[in-house]
């Protein structure tokens, strides 16, 4: 059996989905940074869904749902996206091999739990992890560019199959995708303005109180209500927020720093000082989220005399500043 091996650019990224998109396009000579991908996709968000429980704790996210970065960036940049799902596992693996043999770089949606190269403490039942396969070695192991890792990795076929076809919430169903660089590149200036406008609009939240700035206030209110709950429960609730904000591939402060990086890059590209100012303000917003995380954990540790009110107040400060950020973005993108 021949061992296909394609040329790639592997750059470590903060987030799996924006990282795979950036690496896939960069490998084809379409230069685009991870923050630019994230920003163009208008992926910045805040979500608090108390009724959706993950491991018994409410779902909290700082970005748009999985797969939205892939689809919106491809649409914006006229990248041809071909994706496939499979009901038969062996067919799914065969299609992957064929695409590799044809010199394609293949994006896959996988479950983190079944990827053996992940450290033990990071393996959870999470089905929406993205990676890029670029070849296969003599032993039949797949060569993988997993964007959240410093270097490329390998994975045995059996494990990769398990990871692609793990069942459950957000099940990948073997999803694989290929991107083809467009012949004509789109005008980034126009797309940047559009995407910032969209983010600004969404930041206010939708009708329901679970999204954007409304969602942040809603979460603050919930923290206040935990006042009489058992210590253990409060601790798990707060540490869950911190984990979603910092641990789960966000580039720090729940993607706020990545978004600030996008604004910074956009300001240099468009030679727009105003945008650089907004980037600096976004950094301040990110710093405030980090401060909130610190207070939440200090409360869990019961060190110093920090009250639950101080924790929720710190979260409200984030919401207030996101309101200001929204106004700035809206005014700029008008």
């Amino acid at each position: 059996m021949n061992a296909p091996l394609n040329h790639i650019v592997h750059r470590q990224s903060s987030h799996c989905e924006s990282g795979v998109v950036a690496n896939m396009l960069n490998s084809q000579g379409y230069e685009l940074s991870e923050p630019m991908v994230f920003g163009l996709a208008s992926a910045l968000m805040f979500v608090y869904l108390p009724m959706v429980k993950v491991g018994g704790l409410p779902l909290i996210a700082y970005r748009m749902p999985p797969k939205s970065i892939i689809s919106s960036v491809c649409k914006k940049l006229n990248v041809k996206l071909t994706s496939q799902k499979f009901s038969n596992e062996d067919e799914g693996m065969k299609a992957l091999d064929e695409a590799l043999a044809n010199g394609k770089l293949v994006g896959l949606q996988t479950s983190v739990y079944w990827l053996p190269y992940f450290p033990e403490d990071m393996r959870f039942q999470f089905n929406a992890h993205n990676l890029m396969v670029y070849g296969k070695n003599e032993a039949g192991d797949y060569l993988i560019s997993d964007p959240v890792f410093e270097d490329v990795v390998t994975c045995p076929a059996e494990s990769l199959k398990q990871a692609r076809f793990a069942k459950g919430m957000l099940a990948a169903k073997g999803l694989m995708y290929v991107m083809d660089k467009p012949d004509v590149t789109s005008d980034l200036a126009i797309q940047i303005r559009k995407s910032i406008k969209k983010t600004a609009k969404m930041m206010n939240g939708l009708i329901l109180p679970f999204f954007g700035i409304k969602g942040i206030y809603h979460l603050a209110k919930k923290i206040d209500k935990l006042k009489n709950a058992p210590e253990q429960e409060v601790g798990m609730f707060l540490s869950n927020i911190v984990r979603m904000q910092e641990e789960i591939g966000t580039g720090g402060a729940g993607f706020r720093f990545m978004y600030a990086s996008f604004l910074d890059e956009a300001s240099q590209l468009l030679k727009d000082d105003k945008l650089h100012e907004i980037s600096q303000f976004t950094t301040e917003v990110g710093d405030l989220w980090r401060e909130f995380a610190m207070k939440a954990v200090l409360f869990c540790k019961k060190r110093k005399n920090i009250t639950l009110e101080e924790v929720s107040a710190s979260l409200r400060v984030c919401a207030e500043h996101e309101t200001l950020l929204r106004e700035k973005l809206l005014a700029w993108s008008k």
Partner: peptide, 13 residues
């Protein structure tokens, strides 16, 4: 400890 020697990418000024 949970990084098991790995490093993560963070965006900073």
């Amino acid at each position: 400890k949970s990084y098991s020697g790995h490093k993560k990418l963070i965006y900073a000024v």
